Computed example of a mutant assay.
Amino acid sequence: MGKKTIHVSDFSGTVLQTDDEVVRVVVLEHPDLVTGPVQLEISPTEAEAIDDAALDVAVVEIYDPHGDGEPRRVVLTASEFDAMATETPMAQLLRTAERVRPPKARKTAEKIDYGTIEHAGKPHRGRVTDEEATLVRERLDEVNKRLADAGLRQIDPADPEHAGRYGFPAPDDTTTVPGGNDTSTPDGVPFVTTQATPV
């Protein structure tokens, strides 16, 4: 059994017959709007009525010395605002007034958490955290597969740089003599082997 969605105008309650008749209106500011922007569905005719009723407005910010540095925004009709300029016409005043540079939009780059399996092991300039190093050591195959799939360098525990960065055990530093005899004890102290001479 199918379902049919019926849209009605939020303004008049009129049934909107097709999706093409549904006009979405977002109310950004209104004296009775207390919880932020809302959206309404209306008909194209009702949307035209909004356009016809639109006002030429001036939106200004007032920086009051007693306002704790926060401006208050005021919206008024353009004609009311123009009438306040009694010495020089408002149009001329606006052309010659000092320009205000809009504040630069801050780039809020998403911070990557390298302490998660999703990002652990990726090349980055920051310090490797204990969480990231542990993930790389304990799940190296999984990390390397993800890095390879992304076209990034893989981690090699035998590489001294990688070993130091992610806490892999350093390669064995013991030396051997020809024939494969180890010349150091487990605690790293060299020992001497002697060979008996036949009498």
Rank of each mutant, 00 (worst) to 15 (best):
R101S: 14
V57Q: 03
V8I: 11
G126Q: 01
K104W: 09
P160N: 04
P123C: 03
R99G: 15
I50V: 15
R101F: 05
R72M: 13
D172V: 03
V34G: 05
P190V: 13
M1F: 11
T96A: 14
D68K: 06
K3I: 12
G121M: 00
T185H: 13
K4D: 07
E132S: 01
E87M: 12
T45W: 04
N144G: 02
R99F: 06
G151K: 04
E70D: 15
A54L: 12
P65M: 11
L135Q: 00
T185C: 12
A163L: 02
T35F: 10
T45Q: 14
S43E: 01
A109Y: 11
D10A: 09
D10N: 14
P37W: 01
R24D: 04
H30G: 03
M84R: 12
A120N: 00
A97R: 06
T193F: 09
A170S: 13
T45V: 15
T77C: 10
D32H: 12
P65A: 08
T116E: 09
V38E: 09
N181I: 11
V26I: 11
D182Y: 09
P123A: 04
E161C: 07
P44C: 12
D68F: 10
F168C: 01
K145L: 15
G2T: 10
E110W: 07
T35S: 11
M1A: 14
T174W: 05
G188K: 03
A163C: 03
G126P: 01
V25A: 01
V136I: 06
V57R: 03
R72T: 13
G36W: 03
P160F: 02
T108Q: 13
E48T: 07
E138N: 08
N144A: 12
S12Q: 06
T88K: 15
L152I: 03
E118Q: 03
R165K: 09
V59K: 08
H124A: 05
T88R: 11
Q92L: 09
E118H: 01
R125K: 12
G151R: 05
V74N: 11
K111V: 04
K122H: 05
S184F: 15
P102R: 08
R127D: 03
E21Y: 07
D19G: 15
A97L: 12
E131N: 03
D68W: 09
I62M: 15
D141N: 06
I112P: 00
T183V: 13
T77N: 14
P31N: 10
S12V: 05
I62H: 14
V128Y: 00
L135S: 00
Y114T: 00
A58K: 05
T108L: 13
A196I: 07
K104I: 12
V143I: 09
F191P: 02
P103Q: 06
E132P: 00
G69L: 04
G188W: 02
K107M: 14
G36P: 01
K145H: 14
P186H: 07
E87G: 10
E87W: 07
G69A: 08
Y63M: 08
F11R: 01
T18I: 12
P31V: 06
Q154N: 04
A53C: 05
